[in-house]
Design a protein around this nucleic acid. Structure first.
Lengths: 211, 211
DNA sequence: TCTGCAATGGACTGTCCAGTCCATTGCATT
DNA sequence: AATGCAATGGACTGGACAGTCCATTGCAGA
């Protein structure tokens, strides 16, 4: 054991933890609105009333801050999805999940899109570390969906041979693609159409005709 | 009529036109690989063996260059799609279209994704002009698909009440979303799954069961 | 061959920005 | 009260980059 400490496990007082969290949340908001490359540390400083020393006290560099932002956004998305899919038991409930996604997009006024989707598009080719982190985010997300579908399969709503993993990935793709078109056109309709497609893709495996 | 000329209609000698085109194509390649914000004019100069004066001789500013790059990439995508969808008459032909998309992604080694999709994600919230241009690109693209589907409907392969416009938009969304997941994971499978979903969504409207 | 303009060369400026460095302040433990 | 370290302040550096400016070169028509 050396006396050295990495920035990651640097001792944090409660006061410090609050400041760090405040920085992460503000950075998440800024990056969501403008993209990681378009948010300077100076802007983060202004918005959070912090100094450069504080940023470099709590984060090794900008990339480390982005890493924490991705973690935060991923956990938010997983939480929102899990609350709709954690006990998925009907196509009506699945529709409610789709409506939640659409409502979330509407709430952003058609700006920003998906917090991790935008970052994936921006960073996947720039930073291998970010790419792997975002791959995990997508994987976690599709797993939440997959578990919901699996439950529907267990209770007999879906055919027993339904490839829930494959369908879940396709559903995430539909959401991501729909959001890109929606934010480019500033209309909700492309996202609605994409989600309709995703839900129809699930219904195709319905054990009984449900609508 | 004033003597003033905008940069857009500045007289171009054949020699100048060649240089301008060379710049646009090189910039398109660089932007495809690294994103618009991550390509500096100095890099474009290096790659094309041009000087700063030349860039500003042929383009009003960086944004104007990006505009021409989007035009180029859009025309390439439309051409590739039209060659598969221009005389669409069967689900087999539609499958060939999907395979072309997958092959194009593979050819990029899983890097870069869709030239206009990446730009849409990056620029839609940064530049209103770029956003509108990219919205038109997506619209043109889905129109090509829509016309293909309409033809299939006309020849009786699809139900007469099929909403070809809606299905076409959903298909574009599937492709875009599939590409994001594919480039983030550096695997082709998410794109394949998304395209399977899109094709299934079309087949749902098949007049006769085709498999 | 002369003239005018397109084409090209390349230095220079102003700004933005990530990261460094040297402080001072505040708090908790002894 | 003294000590040590976390927390904070803020000036400074070096580099990147879009855009400007003043040239020189090349070519085509008169």
């Amino acid at each position: 054991m050396t006396r050295e400490r990495t920035i990651a496990n640097r001792p944090l007082t409660p006061r410090g933890a609050v400041t760090k969290q405040r920085i992460i949340e503000a950075a998440a908001e800024l990056i969501y609105l403008h993209g990681a490359e378009n948010v300077s540390l100076d802007t983060v400083m202004d918005v959070t009333n912090t100094s450069k020393s504080q940023l470099y006290h709590y984060f090794a560099n900008k990339q480390a801050l982005i890493r924490d932002v991705i973690d935060l956004q991923t956990s938010r998305i997983l939480a929102a999805n899990a609350s709709f899919l954690g006990a998925l038991d009907s196509f009506v409930a699945l529709r409610a999940w789709g409506d939640m996604i659409i409502a979330a997009f509407r709430a952003s006024s058609g700006i920003g899109g998906c917090p991790i989707g935008s970052l994936a598009s921006e960073l996947s080719t720039q930073s291998e570390e970010a790419r792997l982190q975002l791959r995990q985010s997508f994987s976690d997300w599709s797993n939440v969906i997959e578990n919901g579908l699996r439950r529907m399969r267990q209770i007999g709503q879906l055919d027993s041979d339904t490839d829930v993993a494959a369908v879940a990935v396709a559903m995430v793709a539909a959401v991501q693609g729909g959001i890109i078109l929606a934010k480019t056109s500033r209309e909700t309709r492309p996202l609605e159409l994409a989600i309709d497609m995703a839900l129809a893709y699930v219904k195709r495996h319905a054990s009984v005709v449900v609508g």
